[in-house]
Nucleic acid binder design. Structure first.
Lengths: 140, 140
DNA sequence: ATATTTTTGCAAAGGAGTCGCAAAAATATG
DNA sequence: CATATTTTTGCGACTCCTTTGCAAAAATAT
């Protein structure tokens, strides 16, 4: 967890060119605990001079699943490192102050306990799936 | 289900003025099965001439919980009638063709069965909560 | 070392959604 | 029902987040 990942090789493995902008993003995300808005990341991550490029890099990294886009209904996307199986989690955002907390588990019933412990009330959830439908999976 | 709801009274009860634009939206949504994009609704619902007003009405109706905003990561919001307890459901969208299906149930384990029956593969889900945090609920 | 592919920076544009304001419609009041 | 007050409408302009086109620069392949 504290050990630094070899992002350089990870990028190569996954077929993306290694650039300092991408390494900066990944190293920064490894240090801090998200999810973060693009605004926040752009401001804080050194070595990124252009926002269009920044967006392009976030998209590329999300495409190869190295980072994860998180949408909390705020009108913009957030990103965080994609901690796979071992660290699958969700979030809860306060509808008033917008404070975000991570929920380090994945089943609904257990969620409600954890959320109550956190002191949240009046909880609603949005659970949506993405998949490849029958027709589309045949076409590939 | 087929019976027409008395939207006029519903709006009054909930403290919103009764306007023909709002009635049109509600009557139309009662007839068709969503969730629909604003674009789609604006085009198809008669008696709505201005998009800004249309957005304002969708927001007002969503605020009083008579309709429900649904976000499927498409970059825009969808809306549908809010069928409460008795008809709580979620959706699955194909990441390729964007076809949307409704899932008429609410627990994750049961979901996976239903989704597989629908023929979707490579399923991922986004489950996010909204609530009022401790600090904010005290402040009210 | 050179050719090819990918990424960058810049400026401009796109799309979804919002805002201010005066006119119009709806609701409340006498 | 007539008038006063509140809410909604229509219009245009605008904001915010994100994407695109293009030529220069950097990275990778040969």
């Amino acid at each position: 967890m504290r050990a630094k990942t070899d992002w350089k090789n990870k990028l190569k493995e996954l077929g993306l060119s290694v650039t300092s902008a991408r390494l900066s993003i990944l190293q920064w995300l490894e240090k801090y605990h998200g999810p973060f808005s693009v605004e926040e990341l752009f401001e804080k991550i050194p070595g990124t001079y252009d926002k269009a490029t920044f967006y392009r890099n976030l998209n590329s990294l999300a495409e190869i699943n190295i980072i994860k886009e998180v949408q909390l209904g705020e009108g913009f996307s957030r990103y965080e490192l994609n901690h796979h199986e071992n660290h699958h989690h969700h979030h809860i955002i306060c509808r008033i102050c917008k404070k975000i907390e991570s929920l380090e588990m994945c089943f609904i019933e257990e969620f409600s306990k954890t959320i109550k412990k956190l002191g949240f009330v009046n909880i609603s959830h949005q659970l949506e799936f993405t998949g490849t439908c029958q027709k589309c999976s045949k076409g590939i």
